[in-house]
């Protein structure tokens, strides 16, 4: 009776409690989440307009750099499409990204890694998908970094991505990894995802056709959000 969002497949996502990722132990609910159909409260969400974006918002190489300067590291483009589970493009969708610099260091006062800051790299960017769900940003490839979990755990190179769809039910944060990185398969955070098949969907592919010669390599990363069911049998008047 509603055109609600499809249920989340919780066997596909990481469970809340994943002891090899130690911080999850004290931060994972013990009770099961209570299932409920989405209502307008979850089927609507904030809408962001392209007019809020600054010209350099999706260029992490220059958006924090001093005038005329650029961040250090392998220059890359990340391009992709945001679609829903039914393959429909999701236009006007805000993506926010953050990452370590090319040496694996974050610009954060609680960061303890000895690799140095890059004075011309802030580590955040954002963009909004176009009519076809397409997005792109330019950055430097982040370095891997060690982190306090086991005595010698390292994160593979990754970019964090926050995605808004059209409904609050679609809200998602995930991470993008890089094709060919052997560290992906040794990471306890990646390992919270139950299946290799699901992990593979977070691995961006090198896209040689998209590279800019003598400038930047291109990685392709498509994102899928929950879909909204469409059937003649459940049309209803929305609360307009």
């Amino acid at each position: 009776m509603t055109n609600g969002f499809t249920a989340r497949d919780r066997a596909w996502h990481p469970p809340a409690l994943t002891p090899l990722y130690k911080t999850s132990v004290a931060r994972s609910p013990r009770f099961a989440p209570i299932g409920a159909a989405t209502s307008l409260s979850e089927e609507t969400g904030p809408v962001f307009g392209h007019d809020m974006l600054g010209a350099k918002d999706n260029d992490l190489i220059t958006n924090f750099a001093a005038p005329g300067e650029m961040a250090i590291g392998p220059r890359i483009l990340v391009q992709g499409r945001v679609r829903d589970e039914f393959g429909r493009p999701v236009p006007h969708c805000l993506l926010e990204v953050w990452q370590a610099n090319a040496g694996g260091r974050y610009r954060h006062k609680k960061e303890g890694y000895l690799a140095p800051l890059d004075p011309n790299f802030g580590g955040c960017g954002r963009c909004i998908t176009d009519e076809n769900g397409f997005y792109e940003f330019r950055t430097v490839k982040p370095g891997p970094y060690p982190w306090p979990n086991g005595p010698d755990d390292w994160r593979p190179a990754h970019i964090h991505v926050s995605v808004f769809g059209h409904g609050f039910a679609q809200r998602l944060i995930t991470q993008m990894y890089f094709e060919g990185d052997p560290m992906i398969w040794q990471c306890p955070i990646v390992g919270t995802i139950p299946t290799r098949e699901a992990i593979e969907t977070l691995v961006a592919r090198l896209d040689r056709a998209g590279s800019i010669p003598m400038d930047a390599l291109c990685y392709r990363f498509d994102i899928t959000l929950r879909g909204r069911r469409q059937t003649m049998f459940e049309n209803r008047m929305e609360g307009m």
């Binding site: 996502h13 955040c124 899928t224």
Partner: peptide, 28 residues
């Protein structure tokens, strides 16, 4: 398609979502 699997926001989520709060100013 399957929904992209979630990953933790991690300890540095504020860099991406509230950079001014952290003192990363001039970007937004």
């Amino acid at each position: 398609f399957k929904e992209s699997p979630s990953q933790t926001a991690g300890p540095y989520v504020h860099i991406g979502c509230t950079p001014n709060f952290l003192g990363i100013e001039g970007v937004y």
